[in-house]
Simulated assay, not measured.
Amino acid sequence: MRTRTVKRKAQQQQPPAAQPDTGLVAPAGRREQNKADKLRRIRAAAYDLFTTGGFDDTTLRQIAVRAEVGFGTLFSYASNKRDLLFLVVTDDLLEMNRRAFDNVPTDIPLLDQLLYVWQIFYTFFDMQPTLARLTLRELNFYSEGEQARKIYQGRDAMMARLTALVTAARERGEIRTATADARIARAIFAIYSAEVRRWIGDDNRDMASGMVELRQLLRLLITGITHPVGNPDGGSTAAV
Rank of each mutant, 00 (worst) to 15 (best):
Q33L: 13
R205E: 00
A132W: 02
L94I: 02
N103Q: 13
E174G: 11
T52A: 06
V65Q: 13
T135H: 00
A148L: 06
N140H: 11
D48N: 13
Q14V: 10
P20T: 08
F189V: 07
P228T: 10
W118E: 03
A190R: 01
F86P: 01
R186H: 14
K35Q: 04
A180C: 08
D181F: 11
R215M: 07
D206P: 15
G53F: 06
V69I: 05
E213W: 10
R137N: 08
G54S: 07
A132D: 01
R31V: 04
G210A: 01
S209G: 11
K150T: 02
N204W: 12
I200L: 02
A17M: 11
Y47E: 05
R4M: 13
G201K: 06
R4A: 15
V69S: 07
I42H: 03
L111A: 02
D233Q: 09
N80D: 15
L221I: 12
L74R: 00
E171F: 13
R161P: 13
R43A: 15
G201S: 12
T59W: 13
K38T: 05
R2F: 12
K38L: 12
T90S: 14
T52K: 00
L49F: 01
Q13P: 02
I108F: 10
R66L: 15
Q13D: 07
Y47K: 11
L85P: 10
F141E: 10
I120A: 07
I225R: 15
D57W: 15
D206A: 10
E68Q: 15
E171Y: 09
L74E: 06
F50Y: 05
P20Y: 12
L93C: 10
Q153C: 04
Q113R: 03
I191R: 01
R2Q: 13
I191V: 06
F55N: 05
D57I: 13
P232E: 02
A168E: 04
N97Y: 14
R40W: 07
E138R: 07
T3L: 12
P20H: 05
R40F: 15
I151E: 01
L87I: 04
I42S: 01
I222Q: 05
F86H: 00
R30L: 12
N103W: 09
A185Q: 01
L139P: 14
L49K: 03
D203S: 14
S79A: 15
L87M: 13
Q128W: 11
A18T: 08
A178F: 09
E171A: 15
M158S: 06
R172N: 08
R155W: 03
T237P: 14
D91C: 08
I63L: 04
V240H: 10
N34A: 12
